[in-house]
């Protein structure tokens, strides 16, 4: 159980970082940490005590770990790649326009 709770704490650490940091890059890192904590959680959900990798062989073991969360994690990693690439591309453009990564100096719009 403690592992699951640590995963959730890692998620909260990422959320805290994404919300409170002032540096554009650190915000991106916060979001990445959230994503990785979820990947870890998904893998843990599929884990079984003494499980082996889920490859079916005739007459082999049947105590498999759940393969579906692993497939999900691969998809999430790919999506995370797209999100991070997009965020960093925008961050680079922001730096070129403003010459700083500090969001207090970038803030023109107010929602």
């Amino acid at each position: 159980m403690i592992l699951y709770i640590l995963c959730f704490i890692l998620f909260l650490v990422g959320l805290f970082g994404a919300i409170t940091r002032r540096n554009v890059i650190k915000i991106v890192l916060g979001i990445c940490i959230m994503e990785y904590s979820l990947n870890l959680l998904l893998i843990l959900i599929g884990y079984m005590e003494d499980g082996v990798s889920p490859i079916v062989v005739k007459g082999g073991e049947s105590n498999f770990v759940d393969p579906l969360p692993q497939a999900m994690v691969i998809t999430v990693i790919v999506i995370g790649l797209a999100t991070t690439a997009m965020l960093l591309a925008i961050a680079i453009r922001l730096y070129k326009k403003h010459g700083t990564f500090d969001i207090r100096q970038i803030k023109n719009l107010k929602g």
Partner: peptide
């Protein structure tokens, strides 16, 4: 400037939202 900033803000909040949804799915 305005477009980039709006997009960044949208991405950060949208990213957090997506991950909350993913946590729910997990």
């Amino acid at each position: 400037k305005a477009e980039l900033e709006a997009s960044f803000k949208y991405q950060v909040l949208g990213g957090v939202a997506s991950l909350l949804i993913l946590l729910g799915i997990a």
